[in-house]
């Protein structure tokens, strides 16, 4: 029995120590916002924060976590950087299929936490581990700048409307 601190809550899980955090989150705890894309630390879809650092949860055995604090996308909106990033993501309309986006948001939020005013080179370095098959990179860059500066970097022409997802 292992105890993990996930999004501020202690969770006891009955899993082998070599099980990657990704599968504990998705299949055991039931937090499915963290995605599986490659399983070998190549795509970033599984990015979560461990003590504020962006890590690839698909290659992180839970046995190594100890009492580290794990934050997933489900709770990142409660942090100032996470909120800024999510708001900018919506303002710039980054999302296409959306599958990579939770990982992108987590990488971007970690970047902003450590570097509140990232340059293009900083963004390159922090975000090049996150693949987006839909190719949303141009807007990801814009959204990070916007989150950092609070100012629209591209002309904001997207009309505002309240959004709701499909009824599940």
């Amino acid at each position: 029995m292992l105890t993990l601190n996930v999004n501020g809550e202690d969770r006891s899980v009955e899993v082998p120590e070599d099980m990657p955090l990704l599968w504990v989150l998705r299949d055991v705890i039931g937090l499915t916002g963290t995605k599986f894309g490659c399983g070998i630390a190549q795509c970033g879809a599984c990015t979560v924060h461990v003590d504020g650092q962006a890590v690839r949860s698909c290659v992180l055995p839970v046995g190594e976590l100890g009492d580290a604090k794990i934050t997933t996308v489900e709770a990142i909106g409660a942090t100032p950087e996470g909120k800024k990033i999510q708001d900018a993501w919506l303002a710039v309309e980054v999302v296409q299929c959306g599958y990579c986006q939770t990982g992108q948001v987590m990488s971007a939020a970690a970047l902003l936490r450590h570097n509140p005013q990232p340059t293009d080179e900083d963004i390159d370095a922090a975000m090049s581990g996150n693949i987006c098959r839909c190719g949303t990179y141009v807007r990801i860059r814009q959204a990070i700048h916007q989150a950092a500066t609070g100012k629209p970097v591209a002309e904001q022409t997207i009309a505002y409307n309240l959004q709701k997802g499909p009824a599940q």
Binding site: R26, D27, G30, L31, T32, G33, T34, K35, F36, T72, V73, E74, G77, Q86, W89, L90, E93, V94, V95, G98, Y99, Q101, T102, V105, T157, I158, A159, Y160, N161, Q163, K164, G165, P166, Q168
Partner: peptide, 30 residues
């Protein structure tokens, strides 16, 4: 003709959107 926001974006930014791979049903095995 107006640049409208996507209906699905909020749920895809906060992790609540359900893709096929996220489905969980009782007694399911992987």
């Amino acid at each position: 003709g107006k640049p409208m926001r996507r209906i699905d974006s909020p749920s895809k930014v906060d992790g609540s959107a359900i893709f096929g791979i996220d489905i969980r049903v009782p007694d399911m095995q992987v």
